[in-house]
Amino acid sequence: MAQTSPEQSVRPRVAIVGPGAIGTTVAAALHAVGRTPLLCGRTARDGLELSTADAVIEVPGPVHTDPADIGGTVDLVFLAVKATQVDAAAPWLAALCHSGTVVCVLQNGVEQLAAVGPHAPAGAVLPAVVWFPAETQQNGSVRLRGPARLTLPNLPAARIVVDVLDGTLCAVELAPDFTSVAWRKLLQNAMAGLMALTGRRAGMFGRDDIAELSLDYLRECLAVARAEGAVLGDEVPRQILEAFQAFPPDQGTSILADREAGRPLEWSIRNDVVRRRGRARGIPTPISDIVVPLLAAASDGPG
């Protein structure tokens, strides 16, 4: 009978809920260093595949589809479902979490605590900012087009994530001012909504008219972010635009992929949050007032 080393006996048990582009990247990062996680999702699969510039990583399955079949709780859950799928993922959290389980939310927006908190143990939800370009391919595999990095708030709960991902292809950094980091990423996500409206990829930001609109929109979002406590300079809108302009022209984003696939869009947590919080603070958001209804209609219909 194989012996278990002391290191293996204390290694945290980890689950990935939502093995899409982000979840597959984290699962592959863990598997590549011998820390294969439990995989949980809506669709049964034999395994996952991640392609990077240097390698193809195949993560063995199965992808479990029934919370009753997982065989106990885990110490860390990476929740990688879309914001529109949180309620549907609640049975997974109920089955996977014990009183000390940390739920690291790999999700867009600045409202992860409010969305996921009701479904997780008290005080266990850890928001994260995801900084990597991962795209699902037509065959179901995932392509990682750049370095993978997560930013977490500098809280005690983050320690398990740092330890679990130590030495993997996914770097982790702790931010003393997580609010500013999260809002900066939200500005980037909000602007990406323009790609869903046009049906175009990153090359569209090379157009002068789109660049001008993007800057105006980002400055509107910046005013709201600052009112919410983010410390972000006047240079941030230009930096975000230039980053999009530097992407390969064919690079997409998750909200564009959802639009192309006819899936619901995360318009509320990526775009409407700016309008909602702007209104609450008396800040005009004229561009959001146009962008949000168009995204909502593109997502939810009717028509």
Rank of each mutant, 00 (worst) to 15 (best):
A2P: 06
D289G: 05
E7L: 06
R201Y: 15
A124V: 02
V236N: 02
G301I: 00
A128W: 07
Q3E: 12
R35D: 02
A88T: 14
A148C: 11
G282V: 12
A175L: 07
T285I: 12
A114Q: 15
E173T: 13
C40W: 02
I290K: 05
D87W: 06
L113G: 12
T179Q: 11
T36R: 06
T73K: 08
S51I: 07
V164I: 07
G203K: 13
I57P: 03
L30A: 04
V162K: 08
E260M: 10
R259Q: 15
Q245V: 10
P121V: 13
D177A: 03
V273H: 00
P12N: 15
D87R: 11
V164Q: 06
P156E: 11
P153W: 03
L50M: 10
G199A: 12
L213P: 00
I290Y: 09
A261F: 08
R11V: 04
S268L: 08
A243K: 12
E242G: 10
R42M: 10
F247C: 08
C40P: 01
W267E: 01
Y217W: 14
M1A: 13
P153K: 05
Q137R: 15
S214A: 14
G100I: 10
A29W: 01
G47V: 07
T65R: 14
N154E: 11
L187A: 04
D289H: 00
A53Y: 06
V59A: 05
A157N: 07
A246N: 09
I240A: 05
V181F: 13
G301C: 05
V102L: 05
A243V: 14
R259C: 05
W183K: 08
G117S: 10
V172E: 02
V130C: 10
G117M: 14
Q112K: 13
V129K: 01
L50R: 02
L187D: 03
P286C: 13
S180W: 09
I22R: 03
A261V: 06
P6R: 06
A196N: 04
D75C: 08
P121G: 09
P302V: 15
V292Y: 05
G301Y: 00
A297F: 14
A115M: 08
P19Q: 11
R159F: 09
A225T: 07
A280F: 05
G199V: 07
A134I: 11
P237S: 10
D234A: 12
S99V: 12
D69G: 14
L76R: 04
D250L: 05
T179E: 09
R143D: 12
A190V: 09
A196D: 01
L150I: 14
P67N: 15
G262P: 00
T151D: 10
L152S: 06
L165R: 02
R159V: 13
A257R: 15
T285V: 09
